[in-house]
């Protein structure tokens, strides 16, 4: 009982809060509002899934947290990102460098292009260990082998001396995970880590990430377009569309009582292996919004089947509709709904 409440406490401790984050790109005289005013937070020991289609701003959101975007004036990040009571947006480059890889690390989609082809995988893992932990050569190498064992790469001694082209895609992604976790970060951002992999390999990688998350008590932001993966890994889910959050709720609510029309339509538009054939897929009409176009009102209104007059004029704010469920939709425009920002 005691251990459980300790775990609960740990879970309720906030690790990262993002307040009114806006990431805008300036290309000549065009403004691309990739992320346009989002608020969310992530607790310790929690997996937050961010789901969205291309152009929804999910990757830019992750890159903004790590400040891996081009400098001003071509890209402007505003708002606040509090990580362990520090606003990441106010740090200078060398302070930020101490956080990247050590406190917050990232796994990218394409393991093949993320690894340096002229260095052995051991050398690449050692690089971040040397940079952040200042270990001597022998200790570093021991740590490398320990990390490779942790991500279940067979024969870690031999593998550490191999080059990226000698190992398969799934192994490369394991190496990326080993590299990301080598300094024991408190937050791991995984941006579509399994999209380039086959289903069978994907399953293994998802299992590995979940297992390591439990073991190392790391918080994870898991970005994907695949709702099946979200259901499998996430504790909480954030549904993004056109740079905004449309719904933010625990994973069970998202799948069993989705609040936003977009979430609902998405769930009905995917073919499912566990449902018998003959059911016609629901179609969300129209196409994804062009990030250059300005949409007045709710960003989803041109494709929404429940669209009302107000949706075209005014943008809805996130409203609390359930225990922990927040939805940005005019359908829930009643006085009882508590303003989202007060809670976060």
């Amino acid at each position: 009982m005691a251990t459980r409440s300790k775990k609960e406490n740990e879970k309720n401790e906030r690790l990262l809060s993002v307040i009114h984050l806006k990431t805008h790109f300036y290309i000549e005289d065009i403004v691309v509002k990739a992320v346009d005013g989002i608020d969310f937070s992530i607790q310790k020991n929690e997996i937050l899934g961010i789901v969205g289609e291309s152009g929804s701003g999910k990757s830019v959101c992750a890159l903004s947290i790590l400040r891996l975007l081009p400098p001003e004036p071509s890209c402007k990040i505003s708002g606040q990102i509090y990580f362990k009571n520090e606003n990441l947006l106010e740090l200078n480059e060398s302070q930020m460098q101490k956080i990247r890889g050590a406190e917050i690390s990232m796994i990218f989609q394409e393991p093949t292009t993320s690894l340096n082809p002229v260095l052995t995988i051991g050398e690449q893992i050692a690089e971040s260990i040397k940079l952040h932990q200042k270990l001597d050569h022998r200790k570093t190498w021991e740590k490398v082998v320990e990390m490779l064992t942790l991500v279940k790469i067979p024969e870690p001694f031999r593998r550490a001396k191999e080059y990226p082209h000698e190992i398969s895609g799934g192994m490369k992604q394991r190496v990326m995970i080993a590299m990301a976790l080598s300094c024991n970060p408190s937050l791991l951002i995984a941006d579509e880590p399994t999209t380039a992999l086959d289903v069978t390999t994907q399953k293994q990688i998802l299992y590995l990430i979940k297992e390591l998350q439990k073991k190392l008590r790391t918080s994870v932001i898991f970005i994907t377009h695949n709702l099946g993966i979200i259901a499998e890994v996430a504790d909480k889910v954030m549904v993004m569309y056109a740079g905004k959050i449309l719904e933010y709720a625990p994973v069970n609510d998202i799948f069993h009582q989705p609040g936003h029309p977009y979430t609902l339509s998405l769930l009905k538009s995917i073919p499912r292996l566990d449902v018998s054939r003959g059911i016609r897929l629901k179609v969300i009409p129209g196409s994804l919004p062009n990030p250059i176009d300005k949409i007045q009102g709710c960003p989803f209104h041109p494709r929404c089947e429940f669209v009302k007059d107000i949706c075209r004029k005014k943008e809805p704010e996130l409203k609390k509709i359930g225990d922990n469920q927040f939805v940005g939709c005019w359908m829930y425009n009643n006085e009882e709904a508590i303003h989202f920002k007060k809670i976060i």
């Binding site: 086959d198 289903v199 994907q202 299992y207 069970n252 292996l273 566990d274």
Partner: peptide, 19 residues
């Protein structure tokens, strides 16, 4: 291996030998 979009579906882990 196909992830099912339902958080209540839980599977046991099948170890996979190699790729």
């Amino acid at each position: 291996s196909v992830p099912i979009p339902d958080p209540e579906v839980k599977y046991e882990h099948i170890p996979l030998n190699d790729e």
